[in-house]
Amino acid sequence: MQAYSPIGVFDSGFGGLTILKEITALLPEYDYIYLGDNARSPYGTRSFETVYEYTLQSVKWFFDQNCPLVIIACNTASAKALRKIQEEFLPQDYSEKRVLGIVRPTSEVIGDYSNTKKIGIMATPGTVQSDSYKIEVNKFFPEVKVVQEACPMWVALVENNEHESKGADYFVKKHIHGLLKQDKNIDTVLLACTHYPLLKAKIEEFMPVGITVVSQGKIVADSLADYLKRHPEIESKLSQKNRRTFYTTEDTQKFDRQASLFYGQYVESKYVKL
C-alpha cells in the first residue's frame, strides 16, 4: 500500500485556493494538503527576508507531512522566496523534494496572449516591487513590454467579501486607469495575485473592450500536469486516493467561511501552529 504522500499547496491566506481549485479539477486523482498562513497574512507588504522566513517554515512543515512536491500558490512568496529555497535550501537537506511556484509557469505562456506585445501586470505591492514578472516574462518573450500596477486594496476587498460591492468600483477603476496610463496599447492584463480572480468580473466590466484579462489557475494546473509527465521520478511518489486536507494558522471557523468563496465548495480545515 502506497504511503500518504500528498501534493502540498501553500498560500499566505485564501488566494491559493483558486489555484488548488483548478489543479484538483484537472488532476483529481492525487492527494492534496492546503496550508493558508492566515495568521501572518498578507505577505504582499512584508520584506523579502520576512516572506522568505515564513515561506521556508511552511515548506518545512509540508515536508514533515511527507509531501514530495510543494506548490507555492502565492505570487508574493513565489517572487520573494522561491528561488532561494530552490537554490540554497533544497540542495542541502532535501535534494529529493521539489518546490515549484506560479510566477514562472505563468510567465512562460502569457506572451502568447498578446498581439500588441504590451502586457499589464496587476499585483500586490510585494510582487510589483520584486519585478519578478518583468524579469521572467522577458526571459521567454524579450520583445514584450511589461508594465505593472500595484493594487494594495484589492486583497482586502476580497477577504472582506466586498469584491462585488459598489464600494469596490472605485478601487478597480483607479488601478485600471493607473495601469493603462502607463501604456495605452496594452491588450493583455495578467491578474498576478491569486485573490484577484474573485474580482475578475468587475475588472472586465471596467476594462476597455479588446483587452484580455487572464487569471492564473488554469495556467498553473496545466503546467503542473506537464511537469508530472516530464518528471516520473516525482509523480511516482505521489499517493492517489483523491483526498483533500486543509490547514490554517488562524481560526478554523473563520477560514472555513471564507475558503468556500475561493475554492467553490465547502471546506473544513484544521488548525496548525508553525
Rank of each mutant, 00 (worst) to 15 (best):
D169K: 10
G120D: 03
R243L: 14
V109L: 12
A225W: 00
A150D: 01
K174L: 14
E159Y: 07
A77E: 08
C151A: 11
A123R: 00
L198T: 06
A25F: 12
E87D: 14
I176P: 11
W154R: 04
G126L: 00
A25I: 02
R244P: 01
I71Q: 07
S236N: 14
S58E: 04
C151H: 07
K84A: 13
H231A: 02
L228Y: 06
L261S: 13
N38C: 14
P208F: 02
E159S: 01
K200L: 10
V158T: 11
E205R: 12
T18H: 12
K241S: 14
G111M: 10
L20K: 11
V128C: 03
C74P: 04
F255L: 08
A79Y: 06
Q265K: 14
S114P: 10
L191H: 06
R230P: 00
Y54C: 07
Q86V: 13
I135M: 13
G210Q: 09
C67R: 04
L191T: 08
D183G: 05
K200W: 13
P197K: 09
R243G: 00
A192L: 06
F171L: 05
W154A: 03
F89C: 05
E164G: 07
Q57E: 15
L274N: 06
L228K: 04
S223A: 15
T252F: 08
D112L: 15
F62W: 06
E49M: 03
Y52A: 00
P28G: 05
V128I: 15
V147S: 04
Q86W: 10
N66K: 13
F246G: 02
K117G: 02
Y43G: 05
S78N: 07
P125H: 02
S58N: 14
R83C: 01
T124N: 00
D93H: 15
S223C: 01
V147R: 01
T45R: 09
Y196H: 10
P6V: 09
A79G: 07
K174H: 12
D131R: 13
D226K: 15
D187M: 08
V137G: 12
E268Q: 14
E49K: 12
V103D: 01
R257V: 13
F10M: 11
V147H: 04
P68Q: 08
S114Q: 10
P6R: 02
A81Y: 04
H177Q: 15
G101K: 04
Q148E: 15
I135E: 15
V9H: 03
D226V: 12
P152W: 03
I72E: 05
E159L: 02
K60H: 15
R46H: 13
F14P: 00
M207T: 14
V267F: 08
I85K: 09
K134Q: 13
P6L: 10
D187R: 07
N38K: 13
Q148W: 01
G217W: 07
V209G: 09
E22N: 13
V51T: 03
D11F: 10
P208H: 02
V137E: 08
L56P: 00
G264W: 00
T245A: 09
E108N: 04
Y32G: 04
Y4I: 10
T24D: 14
A73N: 05
F206A: 09
V172T: 07
E143Y: 09
L190F: 15
D222M: 11
R104T: 12
E29L: 06
